[in-house]
């Protein structure tokens, strides 16, 4: 939806809220009952990270294609729409990586495969191999990461991090930041929507800046009050400055199977890609 007459600040805010919507969409997929959604988050975080590392160290195309095929099959079995994968991950990563890798097509010395019609620059076979190798590696790693993000609620990813010795305090702070950043953005968006609904015509840049600054002040005041209340609520339930958490994940049969599957794929990729 296109709206006119908005300040840079409001446009940024709208962009962030759109980001929140996308995050929520990702969490809806993560709560779906597909293959990977049912696997213990610790297994997924460990297994998918191991596959990303295997992709980073793979030295041939075939291994990368194999890993990419495994990732795509994982996405399909986890009921993630292919359109989402293509639009959200592949398009961006391919364009960005291609922009970075493009010069290598012409600068890598080797046998010429093709010449640019007007400029006459030669594209070498070696250059093509280097660029396609880089593209495949980035797309594979991004697809594996996409699988983790879209099949695991953020809260569970954070909890799983504790298994990998990330300090409890860091995990709790990350979780609370995520929770309250969303709330703050929603409040800010609602405030600017309310203001917009009472504004007729175009405001001068000075007025827009003044209103944006006032809005920031109100939000800061609200945040300070809310943080005080959150601290009181923590104290009221016995918080004394030290965080205690409960790891309630339990490995079931299918989790061990998934762990074995990840181990087999990682080992195969490491062996084939050596």
């Amino acid at each position: 939806m296109k709206r006119s007459g908005r300040s840079y600040f409001e446009r940024t805010l709208d962009g962030l809220v759109a980001g929140i919507d996308r995050t929520r969409a990702a969490e809806r997929h993560a709560e779906d009952g597909g293959l990977l959604q049912r696997v213990d988050p610790r297994v997924k975080v460990g297994g998918l990270l191991a596959l990303v590392v295997a992709a980073a160290f793979a030295r041939n195309h075939l291994t990368l294609v194999g890993l990419l095929a495994v990732a795509v099959a994982g996405a399909l079995l986890s009921r993630l729409p292919l359109g989402l994968l293509v639009g959200r991950v592949w398009l961006g990563t391919v364009l960005l990586t291609a922009a970075i890798a493009l010069p290598a097509l012409f600068l890598t010395p080797g046998d010429p495969a093709w010449r640019l019609p007007v400029a006459g620059w030669a594209v070498s076979w070696q250059g093509l191999r280097t660029v396609s190798y880089l593209l495949l590696r980035v797309v594979t790693a991004a697809t594996l990461t996409f699988l983790l993000v879209f099949t695991t609620p953020w809260a569970h990813v954070l909890k799983a991090l504790r298994v990998f010795r990330v300090p409890v305090v860091a995990v709790v702070i990350l979780g609370m930041t995520y929770r309250y950043i969303l709330l703050l953005l929603e409040s800010a968006h609602a405030m600017f929507e309310a203001r917009r609904s009472r504004t007729v015509g175009r405001l001068s840049p000075g007025d827009r800046r003044r209103l944006a600054t006032a809005g920031v002040g109100v939000l800061l005041d609200r945040s300070i009050r809310l943080s005080g209340n959150v601290y009181d609520a923590m104290q009221a339930r016995g918080f004394r400055g030290e965080v205690h958490v409960l790891d309630e994940f339990q490995m079931r049969g299918r989790d061990w199977l998934a762990l074995a599957g990840f181990a087999v794929f990682t080992a195969a990729a490491a062996w084939a890609g050596r």
Binding site: G175, R179, L183, L226, N229, A233
Partner: peptide, 14 residues
Amino acid sequence: LVFQDPDAQLFNPT
């Protein structure tokens, strides 16, 4: 104590 504002009371991820 149950606070009036659930946003203050509910700060955990799940």
